Computed example of a mutant assay.
Amino acid sequence: MCSLLARIAMACWRPVGRYACMSKDDSVNNDDDSSLGDSLLWSKDLEKHSYGEFSFAVVQANEIIEDHSQVETGRDATFVGVYDGHGGPDASRFICEHLFENLMKLSRERGTISEEILRSAFSATEDGFLTLVRRTCGIKPLIAAIGSCCLVGVIWRRTLYVANLGDSRAVIGCLGRSNEIVAEQLTKDHNACLEEVRQELKSLHPDDSRIVVMKHGAWRIKGIIQVSRSIGDAYLKRPEFSLDPSFPRFHLPDPIRRPVLTSDPSMYSRVLQANDKFLIFASDGLWEHMTNQEAVEIVYNYPRTGIAKRLAKTALKEAAGKGEMIYDELKKIDKGSRRAFHDDITVIVIFIDHELLSENISVPEVSIRGFIDTVGASKFNILHGI
């Protein structure tokens, strides 16, 4: 663990570009009494997108952060991506660098955005990463065991499109008939802990009695992995990428006859209605510590500024309590060691201001990458004229 001085030093970070103001946690606009922020918590409190405002926060737990994420704002559209990696950061980083570009290329070629085009962008990203695995597995064989969940949302022409692989989650907050806020989950969790997913796997692999196995207190596909859909995880999709017994954690005693994981996303779309107030896109690091309803009530009942950070801190306080400590004590635990108490956490809250949906509001075309402090011009301008 780092000393107190080291933790303070970690909180000092380089300036960013001219597009936005981002900061590591400085304990502003929160309920903490502590004057020392959390050096592993990055946030962007409030910025504009085409249809309202958004808030963004990321917490690091692993020695090398495996969550990658982005928000792309354009004149006519908004893109959100949450990529929760496992086995390493290679797949989630690759998705962050390529999926949005693939979507823009396909949208420009076909003159629209649709579920089909979003699905094709996922397929192109999977193909690209497997090509990278094939090219590099000779010198880095474990890249075949690296994968990532992938959650994407696009708002374009009053329509929301969502595509999902894995157990990150998109939730919408809607006003009910009694003016109360109600959570609606827009995505399916592709996780073997769910009976529905286990039955799906068994029906797809009737000749494999060990397609799902209880191991280390959880249902796992082939006794190894919990998520049933992902980008990457090449060794569970193609026999050519099987790992030998020198990597026992990822070794399959029998070659796979067909892929046991898929990169085909579940899709969802809806025309946004007046009672749709905001969206929460988050990795499972958030959802393991709060319910959908708890999350939307926090967003609805507190100020917009810093709301993603508030959600992340609420999850961290819950994690601290489970570890029989308070959040101030958890903040003193360094990356790597923090993974014993919580996962990497990504939270993006997208507010929907309906009066802007029919107006031509000028907002900066900005690309923001979570935690890594990258801010620049977005490539959304290629959508102009579609």
Rank of each mutant, 00 (worst) to 15 (best):
S3H: 11
A6T: 15
W13R: 12
P15L: 01
Y19N: 02
C21S: 13
S23L: 09
K24Q: 12
S27D: 13
S27N: 15
S34T: 14
L41V: 14
K44V: 01
D45A: 03
L46G: 06
V59F: 14
A61Q: 12
N62F: 05
N62K: 07
E63L: 00
I65V: 13
D67L: 02
D67C: 08
H68N: 14
V71P: 01
G74A: 05
F79N: 14
C96A: 11
C96M: 10
E97G: 02
H98I: 01
M104T: 04
K105Q: 09
E109R: 13
T112G: 04
S114Q: 10
I117N: 11
S123K: 10
T131Q: 12
V133I: 14
V133A: 07
G147S: 07
G153F: 02
I155V: 12
R157F: 01
V162C: 04
V182E: 13
E184C: 09
Q185A: 05
K188M: 01
D189H: 04
A192S: 15
C193A: 15
E196S: 12
R198T: 06
Q199K: 12
Q199Y: 10
S209G: 07
V213K: 00
A218P: 01
K222D: 07
I224A: 07
S230G: 05
I231D: 11
G232Q: 07
Y235C: 13
E240V: 07
E240M: 02
F241I: 08
S246K: 11
F247Q: 05
R249I: 03
F250N: 13
F250P: 04
P259V: 13
V260H: 08
T262N: 11
Y268Q: 08
A274G: 02
A274Q: 05
A274D: 08
K277L: 02
A282E: 08
A282Q: 06
S283P: 05
L286P: 04
H289F: 15
G306L: 00
K309N: 08
L311M: 10
E318I: 03
Y327K: 06
L330H: 09
K332D: 15
I333F: 11
I333T: 14
K335Y: 09
A340K: 06
L356S: 03
P364R: 06
V366A: 01
S367M: 03
S367Y: 00
I368N: 02
I372E: 06
D373N: 11
G376Y: 00
N381Q: 12
N381M: 09
